[in-house]
C-alpha cells in the first residue's frame, strides 16, 4: 500500500490505506512548506498530489491520487472548514493582479478613447453655440483647439451676421470654451503618460509602431501576456471583430486590418498594398510582443526587417493590379 502526503488549506496529512497516519496543521497559513517538509521527512516514500510542491521537494507526484481523494471525501470528519482563509487568499490575488502595469495602462487607454470622444462632442457643441454670436469665426478657424482659445480670450470686433447677445450669454460660452480646453490639455498629459509607460514596458513594440497603438493593442488583447500569446493572424484583425465575424458567419470578405490600420504606413498606402503591409506588420508585432514579454531585451532587427519588407512591397506592387475577370 502506497503512502500519500496530501494537504489542504489548513494542514498536511500523511495518508495510507484510507487512514490518516499523522497530520500537522499549518502554524502560518501563508507559509505551509515547513510542516509539509517535516511530515515528508518522516514519510519519505510518500506521493504528492501537488506538482509544484512535489517538484520543490523532489518527491513523487500523481494527480489525482488515493490520498487526496480520501482527504477530499472526509474533510468534515477531520476538521472544521472556515471560508475566511479563502476570502483573504482571493483578496491577495486580486491585489497582485491589479498591480501589473498593463492593467493600469489599459484603463488609461480606455480613458483616452472616451476623452477623445467627449472632446469631439464638446468642440462641436462650442462651434454651434458660439456660431449664433460669431458665425464668421467658426467658418474661418478649422482647428478645434485654436478656435476654443479664441473664444475664450478674444472679443468680437468686426461687424458680424451673428446675433448681438447679452454679456451673460457670452460669458457662459467662454466658460465652456475654457473647460473644454482644460480637458484638451489633460488629454495631452494623458497621451504623454501612456507613451512613457508603454515605452518602458514594451521597448521592441514601441520601436516598431506608435506606442499609443501598442497600448490600444494590449487593451484589445486584454493584457500584455495575452497579446504576447496571440498569433499574428489574430493581431492583424484585432479591433475588426464585427467584420471578422461577418466573414466567418456569412462568408463576407475577410477584414485586412483591425486597429493596426491606424499606423500611417498602412492607411496612407495604396489600397492594394494595405493587406500585404498589414500581414507583415502583424507578424512583426507578434514577434516583438513575445520579445518584450518574455525577454525584455531590445532588438533593433525586428523593426529593420519590417522596413525592408515594407520597401519590397512598395516596389513590387507599385502598380494597381488589373481587375481579374
Amino acid at each position: 500500500m502506497k503512502e500519500y502526503l496530501v494537504f489542504n488549506a489548513f494542514g498536511a496529512f500523511a495518508v495510507k490505506d484510507k487512514k490518516v497516519l499523522e497530520h500537522k496543521f499549518f502554524k502560518d497559513l501563508k507559509n505551509p512548506i515547513k510542516e509539509i517538509k517535516e511530515l515528508y521527512e518522516k514519510y519519505p516514500d510518500s506521493v504528492f498530489e501537488n506538482r509544484e510542491i512535489a517538484e520543490r521537494l523532489n518527491a513523487k507526484h500523481e494527480f489525482p491520487n488515493e490520498g487526496g481523494i480520501f482527504l477530499r471525501d472526509n474533510i468534515d470528519s477531520i476538521m472544521k472548514l472556515d471560508n475566511e482563509y479563502y476570502i483573504n487568499l482571493v483578496k491577495e490575488k486580486i491585489k497582485k493582479a491589479s498591480e501589473s502595469k498593463d492593467k493600469v495602462i489599459i484603463q488609461a487607454v480606455q480613458a483616452l478613447e472616451q476623452v477623445d470622444q467627449s472632446l469631439n462632442f464638446f468642440f462641436e457643441r462650442l462651434r454651434e453655440w458660439y456660431g449664433l454670436y460669431f458665425p464668421e469665426l467658426c467658418d474661418r478657424i478649422e482647428n478645434h483647439a485654436e478656435f476654443a482659445g479664441i473664444v475664450k480670450n478674444e472679443e468680437r470686433k468686426e461687424k458680424s451676421m451673428g446675433a448681438d447677445l447679452e454679456d451673460t450669454d457670452i460669458e457662459m460660452m467662454k466658460s465652456f470654451a475654457d473647460k473644454t480646453l482644460e480637458m484638451y490639455n489633460f488629454r495631452e498629459e494623458l497621451v504623454r503618460y501612456i507613451k512613457e509607460n508603454i515605452e518602458k514596458l514594451t521597448p521592441n513594440l514601441s520601436n516598431l509602431i506608435n506606442p499609443l497603438l501598442v497600448a490600444k493593442l494590449i487593451s484589445l488583447a486584454g493584457s500584455f501576456k495575452n497579446l504576447a500569446m496571440l498569433p499574428a493572424s489574430t493581431i492583424q484583425v484585432l479591433g475588426a471583430e464585427p467584420a471578422l465575424f461577418r466573414h466567418l458567419r456569412k462568408g463576407a470578405k475577410p477584414p485586412k486590418h483591425g486597429i493596426i490600420f491606424q499606423d500611417p504606413r498602412i492607411h496612407t498606402a495604396p489600397r492594394w498594398q494595405r493587406g500585404k503591409i498589414a500581414r507583415s506588420m502583424a507578424s512583426k508585432i507578434a514577434i516583438a510582443a513575445r520579445l518584450d514579454f518574455y525577454s525584455g531585451e531590445f532588438d533593433e532587427s525586428v523593426s529593420e526587417a519590417f522596413e525592408i519588407r515594407l520597401d519590397a512591397i512598395r516596389r513590387k506592387y507599385k502598380e494597381r493590379p488589373k481587375k481579374r475577370r
Binding site: 496530501v6 494537504f7 489542504n8 488549506a9 498530489e49 501537488n50 506538482r51 494527480f63 489525482p64 487526496g68 481523494i69 482527504l71 477530499r72 471525501d73 474533510i75 472548514l81 471560508n83 479563502y86 476570502i87 487568499l89 482571493v90 490575488k93 486580486i94
Partner: peptide, 20 residues
C-alpha cells in the same frame, strides 16, 4: 461560500482547496 481565484482548466491548482 468558498471563493477560489483559479483557472478551471487546471483542477490540480485548487485540489487542495476543495473536497469531493
Amino acid at each position: 461560500m468558498f471563493p477560489i481565484l483559479e483557472d478551471a482548466n487546471y483542477p490540480e491548482r485548487y485540489a487542495h482547496l476543495i473536497e469531493n
